[in-house]
């Protein structure tokens, strides 16, 4: 599938960059003329993925978060959010709604459930001690 447009971002794993990341992805897809709901869904999913990099991937330490976003010919937006953090031992368990490894920090354990609900497809690949990549796909209606 041909790529119509793409962009890359990298930034430090600071929680103040959560709003930057979701706003940047939203701005990138704005010329597809999305609905308010489509943009809100995409921003929410990106926010969840970036928060996971900060809270879990880098365990609040310092690291770099990488985002690539592509617009494909079929009006599909593909956003990859990658960290080089601790990785996930058991992806299936991590994706269970209400499962969290950080209950003390008032994490609801809904991150992956929200991504799945607000996107058309969510893929997770991870290697312990190497990092995690979350791929979000969302169609923007023409």
């Amino acid at each position: 599938m041909n790529i119509r447009n793409e962009m890359k971002l990298s930034f430090p794993s600071k929680s103040c960059n959560e709003s930057f990341a979701r706003a940047a992805v939203a701005a990138f897809v704005m010329n597809l003329d999305p609905t308010v709901e489509e943009i809100s869904d995409l921003k929410t999913a990106v926010s969840e993925a970036v928060t996971n990099c900060i809270v879990h991937g880098y365990r609040r330490g310092s690291g770099t978060i990488f985002i690539t976003a592509k617009v494909l010919e079929d009006n599909r937006v593909v956003v990859k959010i990658r960290d080089k953090g601790c990785g996930i031992e058991d992806i299936k368990q991590a994706m269970q709604p209400l499962f969290t490894t950080a209950p003390d920090e008032e994490r609801a354990g809904l991150g992956f459930a929200v991504m799945q609900s607000f996107c058309d497809a969510v893929k997770v690949s991870s290697k312990p001690q190497k990092g995690t990549t979350v791929t979000l796909e969302k169609y923007i209606a023409v």
């Binding site: 979701r22 809100s40 921003k43 969840e48 008032e106 994490r107 609801a108 929200v114």
Partner: peptide, 13 residues
């Protein structure tokens, strides 16, 4: 204007 699942944690807490 915007909330992700952190808002659920905030309310539960």
């Amino acid at each position: 204007r915007f909330m992700d699942s952190s808002g659920v944690g905030l309310v539960m807490g």
